[in-house]
Structures are given as structure tokens and as C-alpha cells.
Computed example of a mutant assay.
Amino acid sequence: MLDDIDRRILRHFQADPSLSTADLADLCRITSGVCWRRIEKMQATGIIQGQEAVIDWAILGYAVEVSLRVTLDKTQARAFDEFTAAARQVAEVIEIQTFLGRVDVRLSVIARDMAHYQQLYRDRILTLPHIADIEALMHIARVKSAEGLPL
């Protein structure tokens, strides 16, 4: 399990993943060697799974974000697997989540504009296999977006 030093490392690393090991060690009041070994251990155990660049899709010209709630035809044994495999092939699908309940899958889809979204919806989304029902929710604003854990 994590001790106070590990939590301190994660808290600072989460806040600024670009910190060097030396800077992270200074913030955590430990040596660089200790910091490096603890980070290596947390990577080896899967606690730290990597670092990502957070990209603002709107600045790159993707002004439309839609959340699609999909109910699948569950009479088909491989509906989940075939649907998610096909959805992964759509570049504009940036997130796929599965659920238990009335809604089976949620797709986050980005598009340059409404015309692009309509084309994408007709040509790529509606052709995905095993869709029984689909509901589109237009994204208006992101009120909170936090990946960090309260450590």
C-alpha cells in the first residue's frame, strides 16, 4: 500500500507531470534516488500507468462534442465486443464507456462542426453493429474535468 511519501510524490506528480525527478524530490523533501525508486516501483505495480498530453480539441478546430448513449441488441452474443471493436476504428470517438443498465455504451464524439458531425453520425456511427437505440446529448460546457485523485 502507499505510505505518506508515496502519496506526496503522487500529489505533486499529478499536479505537474513535467517535473523532473530532482524537482519532485525537492518538493517531497526526499533524495532524488529515493524519489526515482519509488516512482519506478509505482510504475511497476501499475499505480502510475503513464503520462498523457491533454489536448484542447476546440483549439484544434473540433468545436462540437456529443455524448452518444447506445443501447445494444443484446440478443446477439458478441454485440458488446463487435460494437466496441468497430467504434474504436472511428477516429472521432475519443472515449468509450460501458455500463450495466438500460444504456450499454457511451461514446464521446468530436467533430469540426455540425455538418461534419452529421456526416460522421450517418456514415460511421449509425453503421456500427448491433445498435438497438441511440440517444445524442450535445455537449454545452465542461463544468469540471479532473483526472487527479484526492491524495
Rank of each mutant, 00 (worst) to 15 (best):
F13N: 04
Y117N: 09
E135A: 15
Y62H: 11
D113A: 03
F83S: 09
H116M: 06
F99A: 15
E92V: 07
G50I: 07
I125K: 04
H130A: 11
L72N: 00
R78M: 12
R7V: 08
L27I: 04
Q49Y: 05
D26K: 13
A91T: 13
V109K: 00
A25M: 00
R11C: 06
D73G: 06
L100T: 15
M138E: 06
A58L: 03
T71I: 05
F13D: 03
I39Q: 09
K74D: 15
T84P: 01
R122D: 13
I125Y: 01
E40N: 09
P17W: 04
F80Q: 00
A79N: 09
E95S: 10
R124K: 14
R7W: 07
S20M: 02
G33K: 03
S32T: 15
D56G: 14
T75K: 05
E52V: 13
E92I: 03
R69S: 12
R106S: 15
T21P: 00
A132D: 10
C28A: 14
D4P: 06
R78D: 14
R102G: 15
A44T: 10
G46W: 12
Q51M: 14
V34H: 10
M114T: 08
A115G: 06
R11S: 13
R69M: 14
Y117A: 05
A15C: 04
T98G: 01
Y117I: 05
I131K: 08
I39N: 09
R29D: 14
F99G: 11
D3R: 06
F99P: 11
L2G: 01
R7E: 09
F80R: 00
D104S: 05
R142C: 07
R29N: 14
R122S: 10
R88K: 15
R78T: 10
L120C: 10
V64F: 09
I131L: 13
L27P: 02
A91E: 15
T75P: 00
